[in-house]
Nucleic acid binder design. Structure first.
Length: 446
RNA sequence: UCCGUAGUAGCUCAAUUGGCAGAGCGGGCGGCUGUUAACCGCUAGGUUCUUGGUUCAAGUCCAAGCUACGGAGCCA
């Protein structure tokens, strides 16, 4: 009779019982007639110990020859042992029986160090490594927490199209696709459709991949990235900030609660995450520029000083965002950006149209903008004028302008970048590890 | 696209002033009853990114290109 198949994450519940594990050899160390296999099954890792005299000799010889990442089915008794490594660790299997499913060929990723290019070329195998396993599990938890929070707040998930006829934002960064002889584009945002959907459902969000053909080569850019975009009818900029703050705090709290083990694996500084509680400081663009200019004055290093130079009216660069975020140990809101540097659909501030009702959320520790949002223009004339001014062409936006004809209301929404959020929460130096298969400027493989 | 750095064994790296191309890990063979990236012995493994140039002699110097990495711009 074959012992019950269990997941390694549940191993503690089976102390003293015979169980079966199915998985892959993460590492093996041998001491002659005693062999240690560190087995992973996707849910965790457990040490399996083989003594020659406790097994059939043919099977023991198989154990002695096990290569890294060979797939096996192991049966044995669970016992507690402080010496046993693993995830969660502290328990090991005394092997009675082992079946080899496949003997893996020489595995390229060894327990030693590797370079980024090599690992990215072997991403299909790299995802098996502890650190990557932990990060991608945290990513899944972050996405679930965002969706749970929105669902609980009365938002409805409404999917938006990937293939679209018009630009959401800058026309230079679109991927063009051939749509039966006509031009179409991969979506950069679902926002315009969200604005239609709120008139049907009140509060909605979309979640999916977005595509930007930007020639960006930085630690925070991907060509294909995932974005979650809530949109709310009858919503002001201040209420929008409340929503963003509530969601981000919930997400961080959920990761701390559900993924402590994974945070330990990646050696994240937990205090930095525990600090993420409401309220987040809210400063105006005017205030932010003043703070940056004061910071600029205090710097002696000419190179750094040059990077941080800014005049009112300019958009923030990456060094500006980092410098601003460093002034706080929580995310910080910056609102009322100059209208000229923002998208055509953002509402101008009443009585001061050179700034608009926009807000970015900057993550701490140099992770930069993770959220961008705004109140949207709900006046038809003003919106049409802006579309003309940007040279976007009214035909493609006909349906979008329609929304302002049939019960238009003040509304607002934002987009949160999943990969940047994961990079921040995990404390990673680059977004390429936050997504299973990153699409970068010079990489679409594997 | 611009600026900077790098490219040597399957991987991570070393190689003095331009003078015999090396180590660890991984692989193979052998040993070991508590290993934690085990350890010990033996062993195989090279178009030094490409092309051209300087030189008695180039991994090393020069030129161009390719690729990667770091940064900028743009953005989430």
């Amino acid at each position: 009779m074959v012992a019950e198949v269990i997941q390694i994450k549940d191993i503690a519940a089976y102390e003293g019982q015979d169980v079966t594990l199915r998985g892959w050899v993460y590492n093996r160390t041998g001491k002659g007639r005693l062999q240690f296999i560190l087995l992973r099954d996707g849910s965790g890792q457990a040490q399996c110990v083989a003594f020659k005299k406790e097994m059939e000799s043919a099977e023991f010889e198989i154990v002695r020859g096990l290569t890294q990442e060979s797939s096996v089915i192991v049966s044995g008794a669970v016992r507690a042992d402080d010496r046993a490594p693993g995830i969660p660790g502290g328990y090991e299997i005394g092997i009675h029986k082992l079946e080899l499913v496949q003997e893996a060929q020489e595995y390229p990723i060894t327990p030693k160090e590797h370079g980024t290019e090599f690992l990215m070329n072997h991403r299909h195998l790299w995802v098996r490594s502890n650190r990557q396993w932990a990060i991608l599990r945290i990513r899944a938890t972050i996405i679930k927490a965002m969706r749970d929070w929105l669902d609980d707040q009365g938002f409805l998930l409404v999917d938006t199209p990937i293939i679209t006829p018009a630009a959401g934002e800058e026309t230079t960064t679109l991927f063009e696709v051939d749509y039966f002889g006509e031009k179409a584009f991969l979506a950069q945002t679902g926002q315009l459709y969200n604005e239609a959907n709120i008139m049907a459902f009140g509060k909605v969000y979309c979640f999916g991949p977005t595509f930007r053909a930007e020639k960006s080569k930085t630690r925070r850019h991907l060509i294909e990235f995932w974005m979650l975009e809530p949109e709310i009818a009858f919503c002001s900029l201040e209420e929008l900030m409340d929503i963003e703050e509530g969601m981000v705090c919930y997400v961080v709290a959920q990761v701390l609660e559900k993924r402590r083990q994974e945070l330990d694996i990646i050696e994240r500084d937990l205090d930095k995450l525990i600090a993420i509680t409401p309220p987040f400081t809210r400063i105006s663009y005017d205030d932010a520029v003043a703070r940056l200019q004061a910071r600029h004055e205090s710097i002696d290093d000419p190179e750094l000083k040059d990077e941080l130079a800014i005049e009112w009216g300019e958009d923030f660069g990456s060094p500006h965002e980092t410098a601003l975020a460093e002034m706080f140990d929580k995310p910080v809101f910056v609102y009322h950006y100059p209208t000229a540097v923002k998208a055509f659909y953002m509402t101008p501030v009443e009585g001061r149209s050179q700034v608009c009702r926009s807000v970015d959320l900057l993550a701490p520790e140099g992770y930069g903008e993770i959220i961008g949002g705004s109140e949207r223009i709900h006046d038809e004339q003003l919106l049409a004028a802006n579309i003309d001014k940007m040279g976007l062409g009214r035909e493609a936006y006909h349906w979008y302008l329609d929304l302002r004809k049939f019960g238009t209301v003040p509304h607002a929404g934002f987009g949160i970048g999943i990969e940047r959020t994961v990079a921040w929460i995990c404390g990673l130096s680059h977004v390429r590890e936050t997504i299973p298969y990153a699409r970068l400027l010079n990489r679409k493989y594997p």
